[in-house]
């Protein structure tokens, strides 16, 4: 399963692909929703690690436009619940992640993204 929390941490690692290699574009995705345990401390601690714009974009690519364009100054309960849902409860089952720079396609099949590179793509 790929959740958006992990997608938000993932850049392309093809040889020489070092700029504009994030976020990987989500294409032709099928998603599943699975309830996850709400952990407010975790979310508050994790927000600084997120690339917010990339998260908002990825959420839209999987059909969720509930997140605000900027992180709100007041992290109220409603916002944190929404963030929890987007980060941890949306699972990408099928589809692909495409590098915006080199266009490498990382296919996702049965919930598992294939991150293997061909010999000439290894850095």
């Amino acid at each position: 399963m790929v959740r958006l929390i992990t997608h938000n941490l993932l850049a392309c690692h093809v040889k020489g692909c070092t700029s504009n290699n994030f976020p990987l574009k989500l294409q032709d995705v099928q998603i599943a929703l699975r309830e996850a345990e709400f952990n407010e401390d975790f979310l508050r601690g994790f927000i600084p690690r997120l690339e917010w714009g990339a998260l908002v974009q990825a959420a839209r690519e999987v059909g969720d436009d509930s997140l605000p364009a900027e992180v709100p100054e007041m992290l109220d309960d409603e916002f944190l619940k929404q963030l929890h849902h987007v980060l941890l409860e949306i699972h990408i089952d099928e589809g692909s992640m495409v590098c915006p720079n080199c266009k490498h396609v990382y296919p996702i099949s049965s919930g598992i993204p294939n991150m293997l590179l061909a010999e000439h793509e290894i850095g």
Partner: peptide, 8 residues
């Protein structure tokens, strides 16, 4: 092959 997780 390395991997592409962002710094930190």
């Amino acid at each position: 092959q390395g991997f592409g997780f962002r710094p930190g």
